[in-house]
Amino acid sequence: MRLADKSTTMQEALSGLGDGATVMVGGFGVPGTPFTLIRDLVRLGLRNLTVIKNDANETGMGIDHLLASGQVTRLITTHIGLNPRAIEMMNSGAIEVEFNAQGILAERIRAGGAGLGGILTDIGEETELTAGKPRIEIAGKRLVVETALRADVALIHAERADPFGNLRYVATARNFNPLMAMAADRVIAEAERIVPLGDLAGDDVHTPGPFVDHVVALGPLSEEYAVVRR
């Protein structure tokens, strides 16, 4: 038996995606951010996007391009302190920002990827972040109901992939990538290296191939992936 080859081009992987789509984007700061896929999403010109990402990157990088081109109406995130444009657009009402506690955003995505309806937690109980969210009492504890998150498409950055979509991440570039790679109807992974089937040992796989729809090989990495000199 042979596993399918899911390697394709950026254009093909993103084709058919429409305005108003919900897009999950991996990464925490630079590590793990799929800068090339984001650039393609900008080129595609889709409007009215809901973006789910831990942060808004920095000026001139990643998510900032989507914000600058006015393609985003809603951002579900945890921290945007390094992107003044995101803060300005939030303050002026140009985008709606929904803040989550970081680990709760991770769990909501994980729940979406695991086919669950949501999670129960005491995190943020007395903060603005959980205002208006339903509560449930279990074993005498009042818990916040946090709904699961799924997306139309997840953009993932992997260090290595095989053609079937088995993925491996490196160092702190893992972050939200393996969670988002389970939580979208269409999962697209850009990979620094695509190795032949079997070269990525089963025990070394972080995201199993059945979760992944498309694998796209990156050329030489652009400046955006490099060390930032602030």
Binding site: T78, G81, I87, G103, I123, T127, L129
Partner: peptide, 20 residues
């Protein structure tokens, strides 16, 4: 995590760290 109208970067992981 928030100074309303001035600086609202978001809480990141701060809520869970502070609470747990």
């Amino acid at each position: 995590w928030k100074i309303p109208g001035r600086f609202s970067p978001g809480a990141g992981g701060g809520i869970e760290l502070a609470q747990k």
